[in-house]
Protein backbone atom coordinates (compact mmCIF):
# COMPACT_ATOMS: atom_id res chain seq x y z
CA UNK A 1 0.00 0.00 0.00
CA UNK A 2 1.16 3.48 -0.78
CA UNK A 3 1.37 6.31 1.72
CA UNK A 4 1.84 3.97 4.69
CA UNK A 5 5.63 4.22 4.95
CA UNK A 6 5.47 6.15 8.23
CA UNK A 7 3.18 3.52 9.77
CA UNK A 8 5.57 0.72 8.85
CA UNK A 9 8.47 2.65 10.36
CA UNK A 10 6.54 3.15 13.58
CA UNK A 11 5.62 -0.52 13.61
CA UNK A 12 9.24 -1.52 13.09
CA UNK A 13 10.40 0.70 15.97
CA UNK A 14 7.80 -0.82 18.29
CA UNK A 15 8.79 -4.30 17.17
CA UNK A 16 12.48 -3.64 17.85
CA UNK A 17 11.66 -2.14 21.28
CA UNK A 18 9.42 -5.08 22.10
CA UNK A 19 11.94 -7.71 21.10
CA UNK A 20 14.73 -5.86 22.91
CA UNK A 21 12.55 -5.71 26.01
CA UNK A 22 11.87 -9.43 25.94
CA UNK A 23 15.56 -10.10 25.31
CA UNK A 24 16.75 -7.93 28.22
CA UNK A 25 14.11 -9.32 30.54
CA UNK A 26 15.31 -12.83 29.83
CA UNK A 27 18.69 -12.04 31.36
CA UNK A 28 17.25 -10.31 34.39
CA UNK A 29 15.30 -13.32 35.64
CA UNK A 30 17.25 -14.62 38.61
CA UNK A 31 18.76 -18.06 38.51
CA UNK A 32 16.67 -20.83 40.09
CA UNK A 33 13.52 -18.75 39.59
CA UNK A 34 10.70 -21.08 38.68
CA UNK A 35 12.56 -24.24 39.63
CA UNK A 36 9.94 -25.34 42.16
CA UNK A 37 7.31 -22.67 41.65
CA UNK A 38 7.00 -18.98 40.91
CA UNK A 39 9.84 -17.90 43.17
CA UNK A 40 13.61 -17.93 43.53
CA UNK A 41 14.27 -21.44 44.82
CA UNK A 42 17.70 -20.60 46.23
CA UNK A 43 16.05 -18.18 48.66
CA UNK A 44 14.99 -21.27 50.64
CA UNK A 45 18.67 -21.97 51.25
CA UNK A 46 19.16 -18.38 52.42
CA UNK A 47 16.50 -18.91 55.07
CA UNK A 48 18.35 -22.02 56.25
CA UNK A 49 21.53 -20.00 56.72
CA UNK A 50 20.06 -17.57 59.24
CA UNK A 51 21.83 -17.77 62.60
CA UNK A 52 20.39 -20.05 65.25
CA UNK A 53 19.94 -18.08 68.46
CA UNK A 54 18.22 -20.48 70.83
CA UNK A 55 19.85 -23.86 71.39
CA UNK A 56 18.19 -27.13 70.61
CA UNK A 57 16.12 -28.92 73.24
CA UNK A 58 18.55 -30.30 75.78
CA UNK A 59 21.56 -28.38 74.51
CA UNK A 60 22.15 -26.88 77.97
CA UNK A 61 22.38 -30.36 79.43
CA UNK A 62 25.73 -31.08 77.83
CA UNK A 63 27.41 -28.75 80.33
CA UNK A 64 24.78 -28.38 83.03
CA UNK A 65 23.63 -31.95 83.58
CA UNK A 66 23.27 -31.47 87.32
CA UNK A 67 20.97 -28.46 87.17
CA UNK A 68 19.06 -30.06 84.34
CA UNK A 69 18.46 -33.18 86.42
CA UNK A 70 17.25 -31.09 89.33
CA UNK A 71 15.00 -29.03 87.14
CA UNK A 72 13.59 -32.07 85.33
CA UNK A 73 12.57 -33.56 88.65
CA UNK A 74 10.70 -30.38 89.60
CA UNK A 75 7.65 -28.48 88.46
CA UNK A 76 9.58 -26.37 85.99
CA UNK A 77 10.66 -29.40 83.99
CA UNK A 78 8.77 -28.23 80.90
CA UNK A 79 10.17 -24.71 81.06
CA UNK A 80 13.06 -24.28 78.67
CA UNK A 81 16.16 -22.84 80.38
CA UNK A 82 16.37 -20.05 77.83
CA UNK A 83 12.91 -18.75 78.73
CA UNK A 84 14.10 -17.47 82.12
CA UNK A 85 17.78 -16.96 81.28
CA UNK A 86 18.69 -15.98 77.74
CA UNK A 87 19.24 -17.66 74.39
CA UNK A 88 22.14 -20.10 74.34
CA UNK A 89 24.01 -18.02 71.77
CA UNK A 90 24.68 -15.19 74.22
CA UNK A 91 26.38 -17.64 76.57
CA UNK A 92 28.12 -20.31 74.53
CA UNK A 93 29.41 -20.82 71.03
CA UNK A 94 30.91 -23.99 69.60
CA UNK A 95 30.77 -25.69 73.00
CA UNK A 96 32.74 -22.86 74.64
CA UNK A 97 31.44 -20.33 77.13
CA UNK A 98 31.64 -16.84 75.68
CA UNK A 99 29.82 -14.86 78.35
CA UNK A 100 28.01 -15.30 81.63
CA UNK A 101 24.46 -16.52 81.37
CA UNK A 102 22.22 -13.80 82.78
CA UNK A 103 19.91 -14.60 85.63
CA UNK A 104 16.85 -12.53 86.26
CA UNK A 105 15.86 -12.51 89.94
CA UNK A 106 13.02 -10.04 89.41
CA UNK A 107 9.52 -10.92 90.50
CA UNK A 108 8.28 -9.62 87.14
CA UNK A 109 9.79 -12.68 85.46
CA UNK A 110 7.87 -15.02 87.77
CA UNK A 111 4.77 -12.89 87.37
CA UNK A 112 4.68 -13.29 83.60
CA UNK A 113 3.57 -16.87 84.28
CA UNK A 114 2.26 -16.89 87.83
CA UNK A 115 0.51 -13.56 88.41
CA UNK A 116 -3.17 -14.32 88.80
CA UNK A 117 -5.06 -13.48 85.63
CA UNK A 118 -8.65 -14.31 84.85
CA UNK A 119 -7.67 -15.54 81.41
CA UNK A 120 -5.16 -18.09 82.75
CA UNK A 121 -6.28 -21.72 82.96
CA UNK A 122 -7.81 -22.15 86.42
CA UNK A 123 -5.62 -25.15 87.30
CA UNK A 124 -2.39 -23.34 86.56
CA UNK A 125 -0.55 -22.22 89.73
CA UNK A 126 -1.00 -18.49 90.01
CA UNK A 127 -1.25 -15.89 92.69
CA UNK A 128 -2.01 -12.21 93.06
CA UNK A 129 1.63 -11.32 93.66
CA UNK A 130 1.04 -8.06 95.54
CA UNK A 131 -1.68 -9.50 97.77
CA UNK A 132 0.42 -12.61 98.40
CA UNK A 133 3.36 -10.53 99.65
CA UNK A 134 1.10 -8.35 101.78
CA UNK A 135 -0.54 -11.45 103.28
CA UNK A 136 2.90 -12.79 104.15
CA UNK A 137 3.88 -9.54 105.76
CA UNK A 138 6.75 -9.00 103.34
CA UNK A 139 5.49 -5.59 102.34
CA UNK A 140 2.77 -3.17 103.22
CA UNK A 141 -0.05 -2.13 100.97
CA UNK A 142 1.02 0.52 98.50
CA UNK A 143 4.71 -0.35 98.70
CA UNK A 144 6.75 -1.41 95.70
CA UNK A 145 7.48 -5.11 95.41
CA UNK A 146 11.08 -5.69 96.54
CA UNK A 147 13.53 -7.11 94.00
CA UNK A 148 13.89 -10.86 94.11
CA UNK A 149 10.83 -11.21 96.31
CA UNK A 150 9.75 -14.54 94.82
CA UNK A 151 13.02 -16.45 94.79
CA UNK A 152 13.53 -15.86 98.48
CA UNK A 153 11.05 -18.67 99.08
CA UNK A 154 10.62 -20.31 95.70
CA UNK A 155 13.71 -21.75 94.06
CA UNK A 156 12.97 -22.02 90.34
CA UNK A 157 15.25 -25.05 89.74
CA UNK A 158 14.31 -27.16 92.74
CA UNK A 159 10.59 -26.51 92.92
Amino acid sequence: MEHTKHLWRAFLILLVLGVAGIFVRHFLIPESFGEQGFYRYTSLGEFKEKPVIHGAVGSCTSCHQEIADTKTAGKHASVSCEVCHAPESVHAAGGQKIADMPTNPSHTLCATCHQFLEARPKEFPQVDVTQHLIDLGVMAKGEAIPDGACIVCHQPHTL
Partner: peptide
Protein backbone atom coordinates in the same frame (compact mmCIF):
# COMPACT_ATOMS: atom_id res chain seq x y z
CA UNK B 1 9.42 12.62 15.48
CA UNK B 2 8.10 12.39 11.93
CA UNK B 3 10.29 9.28 11.50
CA UNK B 4 11.73 10.89 8.41
CA UNK B 5 8.56 10.51 6.40
CA UNK B 6 7.07 13.77 5.18
CA UNK B 7 4.04 12.34 3.46
CA UNK B 8 1.04 14.54 4.20
CA UNK B 9 -0.83 13.74 1.03
CA UNK B 10 -4.59 13.45 1.33
CA UNK B 11 -4.21 9.69 0.87
CA UNK B 12 -1.73 9.38 3.76
CA UNK B 13 -3.88 11.48 6.07
CA UNK B 14 -6.90 9.35 5.23
CA UNK B 15 -4.97 6.23 6.21
Amino acid sequence: MALGVYDISEEALRV
